[in-house]
Design a binder for these strands. Structure first.
Length: 612
DNA sequence: CTAGGGTTAG
């Protein structure tokens, strides 16, 4: 089918010269002469023949010597009922082999229209994929204009749909969204096939509002969503913590003739598990009940894994075990994720030996431990002062051919440093580098912290200076080093280092940064110094005093017996509406209440939470 | 389309 293109309406003006005879196409039989255009029907056929037989060298010669406007020739080829696949092959060859060839958007989409008419959809898909990868300089509106030059709405919709898909697959989200919008303006109907990858890509970038926009547009434009698209939208709302909206989508599904499946329910249950606050597991449980009883959807391995992880993270390990037993009863086989969650729960609860048992249990159940398993166990051992066990686990990980990561090493290095064995920490760092694993800023932070704790601030500073050369130190590095100086009574030095970091590294200090300094000055009894830090923090960085900052100053003033100042600070903090925490109360109680400076006002003033 | 882990400062 021929596609009308305005640009080529008057070909006579474009091709002033006459094309030569067929013989020019065959360099072996006669020498090539500069040939005029346009090509005759026979010439086009001859070129088509060359393309079909893949006589690329002859074509190349022709292009170099005779053809000075590939756009025009290409237009002729497309218009000559030549098989669109051959045109595509020629197009691809042309772009790759003839220097400075750029075929116009109009021609490009002319070709795609022919391909679409021939229903060569997979060819279009891969073409567009390459198109958005390489030729990224075309504005979307031009592309849509090129699409619109054909008046077959159905074909245009297919092209627009595949374009959106190509952008989404290549994570060019702005372009994908713009194409999605323009398709709407042009009245092209997209499909769930391209909307789903678009929403998935948006969700991966946490662009929840955009996911919602696409979803609403789909409904408005009457693009029929399927279970998968609905599930992505549900997931998006869940990840944003908007559980009510997620449930609304579950209802939408029913309106559109689909029902929630096990993935929909799992997503919703996981949403509740990851929600903060009390009673979330109760809600997760309620969804489970609804799923099983009302919707007759059976929980699967993922359902159980979500719940097991949810319960221990809610501080309810026995809840996890209950779910675990339940899944065994229902003959759902636990996998490595199941065991890793259980092991993690045990490790974080300090029950390291039980975690080891669970590891043995998983092995005897025929489930292979993976890096996650080992890292959890190693971390558990490290945090509980069981260095030997941690190293044993590390050895068996390597023995099984699992490649540790920098984080695996960092846990061990940190454990060494925290137990005063900084040298061993450095030894491990060398080992990791020998194995080709790059020591990262966290590695150095552990080591610098270890040196500071060992009183080797000079060594720490030296290592820090090496990092500065590489632009590696981050805010945490500064905190560690500053803390090191402060605890030696050298808060001024710490302040100097911070100042340098701000000006040379573009460091962005936070409350903690200044709190470290204020605490340092307070401990030196230099309340003026501490007050200056506060001024600096509020003026230069526009950070307002938070509860932690007040706690530092309260401690400093009250310990120096400056009770009036301490009292003033306390009132100031309360007037600002800041809610004192447990640490505040402990300071006030020990320094002010017990010494008779203020009455014990815990009852009505302090909202003392059990967490710090 | 849904599930798991790990490092530094606090």
């Amino acid at each position: 089918m021929l596609i009308k293109s305005r640009k080529f309406s008057d070909l006579k003006d474009v091709f002033p010269r006459k094309f030569s005879s067929l013989t020019t196409l065959c360099p072996s039989s006669s020498p090539i002469t500069k040939s005029p255009f346009p090509p005759s029907r026979d010439d086009v056929a001859a070129i088509a023949d060359l393309i079909e037989k893949q006589h690329w060298s002859k074509l190349k010669l022709l292009h170099v010597k005779d053809i000075n406007n590939p756009n025009e020739l290409f237009h002729q080829l497309i218009s000559s009922n030549l098989d669109p696949e051959l045109c595509l092959r020629y197009y691809t060859w042309l772009i790759a082999n003839i220097r400075n060839t750029s075929l116009s958007l109009e021609l490009t989409f002319n070709l795609l229209h022919s391909l679409a008419n021939a229903k060569k959809y997979s060819k279009i898909r891969s073409f567009l994929d390459g198109f958005v990868k390489k030729r990224s300089d075309h504005p979307i509106h031009s592309i849509f204009h090129a699409i619109s030059l054909c008046d077959n709405l159905c074909v245009n919709s297919i092209l627009a749909d595949m374009l959106v898909l190509a952008y989404a697959n290549n994570l060019r989200l702005e372009s994908a969204l713009e194409a999605f919008k323009r398709a709407g303006y042009y009245g092209y109907k997209l499909s769930a096939l391209s909307c789903k990858p678009l929403m998935v890509a948006l969700l991966n970038e946490k662009r929840f509002a955009d996911v919602e926009f696409v979803y609403k547009e789909m409904i408005r434009r009457r693009i029929q969503p399927n279970v998968f698209t609905f599930n992505v939208v549900i997931n998006s709302f869940c990840k944003k913590g908007k559980m009510e909206k997620a449930k609304d989508v579950m209802e939408d599904m029913k309106v559109y003739g689909t029902s929630p499946n096990v993935v929909s329910y799992n997503t919703l249950i996981d949403g509740y598990c990851k929600l903060g606050g009390v009673g979330k597991m109760y809600k997760a449980d309620a969804v489970l009940k609804e799923m099983v009883e009302s919707s007759k959807v059976s929980p699967n391995l993922t359902t159980f894994n979500i719940l097991i992880d949810g319960f221990w993270k809610d501080g309810n390990y026995s809840g996890s075990m209950k779910v675990f037993r339940e899944m065994l009863e229902q003959d759902v086989k636990p996998n490595v994720v199941t065991y890793n969650s259980l092991i993690n729960g045990l490790c974080s609860g300090g029950k390291v030996s039980e975690a080891t048992c669970m590891h043995d249990e998983m092995v005897s159940a025929g489930v292979e431990p993976n890096l996650v398993t080992y890292n959890s166990l190693i971390n558990g051992f490290c945090k509980n002062g069981m260095m030997k066990e941690a190293l044993d686990m590390f050895a068996s990980l390597k023995g099984r051919g699992i490649v540790p990561t920098a984080k695996t090493y960092n846990m061990l290095i940190d454990a060494y440093c925290k137990s005063g064995k900084v040298e061993d920490g450095f030894g491990l760092k060398e080992e990791m580098e020998r194995e080709g694993i790059v020591a990262n800023v966290e590695t150095y932070n552990c080591l610098i912290g270890g040196l500071c704790r060992n009183g080797n601030i000079e060594g720490a500073k030296k290592l820090f200076d090496q990092l500065s050369g590489k632009g590696l130190p981050d805010l945490v590095t500064y905190h560690i080093l500053m803390d090191g100086y402060c605890s030696r009574g050298e808060s001024r030095k710490a302040a100097m280092i911070l100042k340098e970091g701000i000006s040379k590294m573009g460091l962005k200090p936070r409350h903690l940064t200044y709190n470290i300094l204020m605490e340092g000055y307070c401990k030196e009894g230099n309340l003026k110094g501490a007050a200056n830090v506060r001024v600096q923090m509020e003026k230069e960085r526009r950070l307002r005093m938070n509860v932690a900052s007040y706690n530092v100053l309260l401690q400093g003033y009250s310990q120096k017996g400056k009770m009036e100042d301490a009292n003033r600070l306390l009132n100031e903090m309360l007037e600002k509406g800041l809610i004192p925490n447990r640490i505040t109360y402990e300071i006030v109680k020990a320094e002010m209440v017990d010494k008779g400076f203020v009455p014990d006002i815990q009852g009505h003033l302090f909202n003392v939470s059990t967490k710090s």
